[in-house]
Amino acid sequence: MNGIAIRPATGDELGAVAELRWDWVLENGGLPAVTREEFTKSFASWARENAVTHRCVVMVRDDEIIGMAWLAVVQRVPTPHSPARASGDLQSVYIVPEERGNGLGSLLIDAVLRLAHDRGLERVTVHSSVRAIPAYSRRGFVTSPRLLQADLADPT
Rank of each mutant, 00 (worst) to 15 (best):
Q91K: 11
R7F: 02
D63Y: 07
R76A: 04
C56T: 15
G29Q: 04
F43Q: 06
A111F: 03
A51S: 14
F43T: 08
G101L: 02
I65T: 00
R139S: 15
D23H: 13
V57G: 01
G120C: 10
E13M: 11
V58W: 00
W24Q: 09
H81Q: 12
V52F: 11
D23F: 05
G140Y: 13
E19W: 00
R7T: 12
T40D: 02
E122G: 09
A135R: 08
K41E: 15
A44Y: 01
D63E: 10
S87G: 12
L108K: 09
R61V: 15
M59I: 01
A132M: 10
G11E: 12
T10L: 12
P97I: 03
L107P: 02
P134Q: 15
W24P: 00
R85Q: 04
A84T: 11
Y136I: 14
V60S: 01
R61C: 10
M59E: 09
M59L: 14
G120A: 04
L90F: 06
G101N: 02
D118Y: 01
V142C: 07
D110N: 13
F39E: 03
A33G: 12
A72C: 03
G101T: 02
S129T: 15
R85D: 01
R76T: 13
E27C: 03
G88E: 00
N102F: 05
W24G: 05
H117A: 13
V77K: 03
R146E: 09
Q91L: 07
R21W: 03
V74G: 03
V124N: 06
R76F: 07
R123D: 09
P8F: 13
V60G: 00
L147V: 15
I95D: 02
V130F: 08
V57Q: 15
S45V: 12
L113Y: 00
V96F: 06
W24A: 09
L113A: 06
L31S: 08
G105Y: 13
R100E: 04
G67A: 13
G29A: 11
Y94E: 00
I4H: 05
E98L: 05
S144L: 01
G67D: 06
D89S: 15
V77M: 09
V112W: 00
E49V: 08
A135F: 09
R48C: 11
R48M: 11
L108M: 13
L121F: 05
G29H: 07
S45I: 11
H127W: 11
T35D: 00
G120Y: 07
S92A: 14
V142E: 15
G29K: 06
P134K: 14
S45N: 12
R21A: 10
E38V: 08
S82H: 06
Y136C: 07
T40C: 11
V126K: 08
M59V: 10
R123Y: 14
V130E: 15
R76Y: 06
E27M: 04
R119S: 10
V52E: 14
L14E: 08
D63C: 01
P8C: 13
I66Y: 02
E27F: 07
T35Y: 00
D23I: 13
H127I: 12
A18C: 04
W46S: 10
V17Y: 09
S106E: 08
E27S: 04
G67F: 07
V124L: 11
L71C: 06
R7V: 13
L90K: 03
G30L: 09
R100I: 11
W24H: 14
E13A: 13
A84W: 03
R21P: 01
A33M: 04
A69I: 05
A84F: 04
D63H: 10
Q75Y: 02
A44L: 00
N50G: 05
